[in-house]
Amino acid sequence: MTTLHVLNASPSNAAQLSSCLRLMSAGDGLMLCGEAVQALRDGSAAAQQLLGGERAYQLYALEEDVLARGIDAAALSVTLVDYPAFVALCVDYARVNSWT
């Protein structure tokens, strides 16, 4: 039973990303929205965390947040989603764990 983890805090302010990466299982999803999309900035420490390791999870980001911040997410294989796709992800994964 897989989990979609949803993060929204800036990677520089909060422990969300590092903590989340530690408790994710293979097959889980990681959805970045709000300030959490800053982790997609190429060359950032947070992007290194996302790139590092075997990455047994699927990475998603809320498209409006990526576009709003002018982030070029090409370096990381991230699926940009709109709200209908976000809902569909919540259906596909067995549970959603939102971090605040």
């Binding site: 709000g34 709200y83 809902v87």
Partner: peptide
């Protein structure tokens, strides 16, 4: 919903909720 209406997350919650119903859930 855990934040006031000034928080971006509350707008996000609304857009998500709208998409939930639009998808027939």
């Amino acid at each position: 919903v855990l934040s006031s209406s000034n928080a971006p997350s509350t707008r996000r919650a609304l857009r998500f909720a709208q998409a939930v119903l639009a998808a027939g859930h």
